[in-house]
Simulated scan of single mutants.
Amino acid sequence: DRVDSSSRPANNNWDVDAPVSSGASDAARQRYMPKYFDWVNKVTPAYGMDAGPNTSCSTTAITPLTDVSTTAGATLIKNAIDAMADDGATNVPEGMAWCWRTLSSTAPFTEGRPETERGNDKVLIVLTDGANTYYTPTSVTAQTYSGTNWSSGGNDLAGSKAIYSALGYVVPYSNGYSYGRMFLGTDVTKDDYSNANYTKAMNEHFTALCNNAKAAGIMVMTIALDLDATKTAEKTQMDALKACSSDSRFSKDKTDPSKPMKLFWNSTGATLSDDFKAIGNELSNLRIVS
């Protein structure tokens, strides 16, 4: 790895850069795609979950909408859950967006029933145990194999302003773009490259996604798991989850019976099982009243 002036290595190792010239910029070296392919294997063999140039790119593909009333379907879902491994930052809107895609009847997933089908309710459940996060390279320790000063944080010699994840780099390599996907469609300051500003941008994405999903007829249920209301970022996430949730069609707000109950649960590990039973009851009533 190349190190910066503070002797910090990259967060993940570079792959072989040839035939890029030795004088190429770090950004050019980072974006040089041919190094990820070879004539024998077509694609360079994968490294570990947090190793090498495919860091944050080794996520298992999402499981399509599956009928769990069958033994085969239930087994498929349980196996997929057991195979899950947590890694990286927390991106609530990304998870919610992919869930919506599986419910949809149109590509990239087509297992969902047509949106026009009478009596068909599409319910999306969002659960998170953390606030939205996205990290600058220097704010997260590098891998232990990366270099002597790995614990001092990674470098950002390529000027990407973020560790690569679902939203890509915050600063695009191409001059044709003013800023990356992180800031598209948001009102945040576009040149504030901080973890806190990234969280603000992701929160705006989440709010827009929630509004779009509900406008499309999706019923949204949200769960905040073990979030701490005394911490600003987590309290913001809790408020966003509650605002995102749909209104119950039959349950009333316990503090104000004139209003419908919000389909939001502030859960802990101790209450989660009972909260899912409440969600099950809500879904059962949907079948009765639909």
Rank of each mutant, 00 (worst) to 15 (best):
S105P: 08
T106K: 12
T106C: 05
T106S: 11
A107L: 13
F109L: 06
T110Q: 02
T110H: 05
E111W: 12
R113V: 14
P114V: 15
T116K: 15
E117H: 03
E117Q: 13
E117K: 03
G119Q: 02
G119D: 11
G119E: 10
D121W: 04
D121Q: 02
K122G: 13
V123D: 11
I125S: 15
I125F: 09
G130Q: 09
G130Y: 11
A131H: 14
N132C: 01
N132G: 03
T136P: 01
V140I: 05
A142D: 08
T144F: 06
Y145H: 00
N149V: 00
W150T: 04
W150H: 10
S151T: 00
S152W: 05
D156I: 13
D156K: 03
L157A: 08
L157Y: 03
A158P: 01
S160D: 00
K161M: 03
A162I: 10
A162M: 07
Y164C: 03
S165N: 04
L167W: 06
G168I: 04
G168S: 00
V170H: 06
V170M: 05
Y173W: 15
Y173H: 12
S174I: 05
S174P: 01
S178P: 10
S178F: 01
Y179V: 00
R181D: 14
L184T: 01
T186Y: 11
T189L: 09
T189A: 08
T189R: 02
T189G: 08
K190L: 02
Y193S: 15
Y193E: 15
S194G: 00
S194I: 09
A196K: 04
A196W: 06
A196V: 08
T199Q: 11
K200W: 03
A201P: 11
A201L: 01
M202F: 06
N203P: 00
T207Y: 07
A208G: 07
A208T: 03
L209Q: 01
L209R: 11
C210P: 09
N211Q: 12
N211P: 03
N211A: 07
N212C: 02
A213E: 14
G217W: 08
M221Y: 12
A224Q: 05
L227M: 04
T230P: 06
T230D: 11
K231R: 15
